[in-house]
Write a protein that binds this DNA or RNA. Structure first.
Lengths: 340, 340
DNA sequence: ACAAAGGCTGGGAGCGCTCCCGTATGGAGT
DNA sequence: ACTCCATACGGGAGCGCTCCCAGCCTTTGT
């Protein structure tokens, strides 16, 4: 396993070449104050001439930080990997980290062996903090990270959990306002396609659906609920099933825009018009929602804010050493288009 | 930016606690030979009691290796991120790396600033090698990595390029055999939906299409070619266009299974039967191909082999220090199902 | 002209490991 | 009993940086 790379110049060599001390070179590459402008230029020229690149292992060791954070996806999320939610989140986290000088590393954790390996990687100090994608109920990873006192922020909380930092959207409120909107339109036969119910977010959206029905004095019926896994495929399936069970259906709240797109296809196949016969509301408001036919009314998740909030919380925790838990719930918003 | 974590035990402390020398502890944690079984157990107990985790920065610095490789996606690939090809590749790379003890890190490079930052990260020694997802024609990243003498393996070559290692599927052969198959069935009005033509792989598949027509003595017509970006959406579009241009169309080779799925929808919408009126062949053979209606005939890319080959090439390059370029072209295979 | 107060700079002391050489230790061979 | 060798083990010498203190040199005030 000899993986050394050939003679990279060191900081010391740069210092010699520029006829200054190590300290000065260090100050220059770290943009620290207290270096005369002429010296700085001189050092910078030396850096360029030698093609110097700081050795990050040495910097990490001496500085006790990695300047990197990991975004972890655990196995059950893997199926979401191909869904737009994921790529949108990555994009927004990337943006939020842009000018912190912190590298974002995506890591997959698909088995216990990989969980263990990642833990060693993180505890070994290769990252300063961890962002976790929507973690499922039974996953012990957050606890393991907490035990190791690694700054951690979850995207989406888990049921009732308080002793961990998280950023979440107001799923209950979003679902409630969507269903209430349908009710105000005079729809009465409203069903819902949920996400995987081991995800707390999916449970919350279902709760919002129930609450809206309840406050309109309507009864909740289990047969109006179909579960999906967020894919279009499963949305189509779920919708077909709901139509069969309740031919008089006139409104649907879907688990995501993708699911809603699948539902639209199933409705078209069944000869129902949208929105005349059946109103459809999605969840997320990603670009897909504007490309369906008809364009989708949907509950917007503020992705940019979620990314920014996650990064802010993580940086704060990194600063102070994971001594407090922070929670941020972001408001969702109903975006009305043509499917209602 | 004080991101230090509290008193983690060091190897030295473990050594003291187990009453052995540093060297012995090092040998134990690295599973090196030459430690008496009783000593090993003794040290292991000390490690456990103190909850010791090796500091990877120190290990990296002393050992001159990072035990990590990066899988990089550049901006133009980003749109593929949500496609199954990507997640399949990641899965197969992960499997191939499983028992090497090497961490796979996914990184996004969406702008020149991020390109630069990643380069510093890699040149700084945080990874021992780089895997690059299908790189587009103009991207300078591979050259920059080569210049830094970082072991690099591309997935999918770029036009005519030799001075870089890559693993690729035989796209020309795959496309050719698919189209030949359609011709043998007696189809004569065959069109193709290509991928983005700035991708060499897409060009190759188009070439295969052309070659098959040529060797059957048929003429190539530009109007039978429609470009897609690998998404179902764009596949639907392209197919609709092709139907309009050539109502007598009786066979289509699509750029990917996803594109083919889109094409199937467009054909259904146009009232064409598959395979009776029009035969459809996809490319990739991911799970999607078995879930379409009808199930898709498709050109299989050997994903597992691709992942294994990429990892093998990268490890070889890491071993010997990027002094040679290796190329692997993997055979593709036509999988016949119901859409032809 | 002299003192005090800054601003710059150099370099020692680690950070926590791996590598490797030198030295113990135990058993086999005669 | 003594030599010889293989096997275990200890610890010095870095790896390339950051942190920080001490010293120098310039500036300003009186």
């Amino acid at each position: 396993m000899g993986r050394r790379r050939p003679g990279t110049p060191t900081l010391e060599e740069v210092a010699a070449h520029a006829r200054v001390g190590r300290g000065t070179v260090s100050r220059v590459i770290n943009n620290a104050a207290g270096v005369k402008e002429s010296t700085r230029r001189n050092v910078q020229r030396a850096i360029e001439e030698l093609g110097y690149v700081p050795n990050l292992a040495a910097r990490s060791l001496a500085g006790r930080r990695a300047d990197a954070v990991a975004l972890v996806m655990t196995e059950p999320d893997w199926r979401q990997f191909a869904e737009p939610f994921f790529s949108e989140i990555v994009r927004s986290l990337g943006d939020a980290l842009t000018d912190t000088g912190i590298q974002l590393l995506l890591t997959l954790v698909r088995s216990d062996a990989e969980r263990q390996r990642f833990l060693e990687y993180a505890r070994g100090g290769r990252v300063d903090g961890v962002l976790l994608m929507s973690v499922h109920a039974g996953d012990r990873l957050p606890d393991m990270l907490a035990e190791a006192r690694l700054p951690t922020v979850l995207l989406g909380r888990r049921s009732g959990e308080e002793y961990v930092s998280y950023v979440d959207a107001d799923n209950i409120g979003g679902a409630r306002s969507a269903v209430s909107y349908l009710l105000r339109q005079g729809r009465r036969e409203i069903a819902t396609i949920t996400g995987p119910l081991d995800l707390y977010a999916a449970q919350c959206r279902l709760r919002g659906y129930e609450e809206a029905l309840a406050s309109a004095g309507l009864e909740f019926e289990q047969t109006r609920v179909a579960e999906s896994d967020f894919t279009a495929e499963s949305g189509r399936h779920a919708m077909a099933e709901l139509i069969q069970r309740h031919p008089d259906i006139d409104g649907v709240l879907a688990a995501s825009d993708t699911t809603a797109a699948g539902a639209l296809e199933a409705l078209r196949a069944a000869g129902r018009r949208v929105p005349e016969d059946v109103a459809v509301i999605g969840f997320d408001d990603f670009s897909l929602a504007q490309r369906t036919e008809p364009r989708l009314t949907t509950v917007r998740q503020p992705i940019e804010e979620i990314g920014r909030a996650m990064v802010r919380l993580l940086l704060e925790e990194m600063e102070e050493g994971a001594v407090a838990w922070r929670h941020v719930i972001l408001r969702t918003e109903l975006v009305i288009r043509e499917s209602t």
